[in-house]
């Protein structure tokens, strides 16, 4: 499993309802950001991509998806540079979104089990 729910479990102190609530918010956010990031990529708006990815960064930290942080930081940095290649950013985003979609698939199963 990509996500590590140790922090959330400790934060919710074993309250399964709350844990599921946070996981659901994360799933919704990823699904929404997936659409918005792809749209921003089509429009070649690097600044917008940067802001969407930034929102995902803190949520990933809470969901224990720490292994995605270096990639998110790389994308944020590249989006902040005027002369960065959009193709390279698109490739990084594709990896990021694939990982996030895999994570929400697994997290969806966690909610169903409970």
């Amino acid at each position: 499993m990509l996500a590590n729910l140790d922090f959330l479990k400790s934060f919710t102190k074993g309250d399964v309802e709350k844990l599921n609530k946070y996981i659901s918010i994360f799933i919704d956010t990823v699904q929404q950001k997936d659409i918005e990031i792809k749209k921003a990529l089509e429009d070649k708006k690097k600044e917008v991509i940067k802001i969407h990815v930034h929102t995902l960064k803190s949520q990933c930290r809470y969901m224990g998806l720490n292994n995605l942080e270096p990639l998110i930081l790389q994308i944020e940095e590249a989006c902040g540079l005027e002369d960065s290649s959009l193709d390279a950013i698109a490739e990084q985003l594709s990896t990021l979104l694939a990982n996030l979609n895999q994570a929400i698939l697994e997290l969806g199963e966690v909610i169903q089990k409970k």
Partner: peptide, 13 residues
């Protein structure tokens, strides 16, 4: 905060 998850977590906490 415009981040729903952060807002919810802070409110609960």
């Amino acid at each position: 905060d415009d981040d729903s998850m952060q807002l919810q977590m802070l409110n609960d906490y």
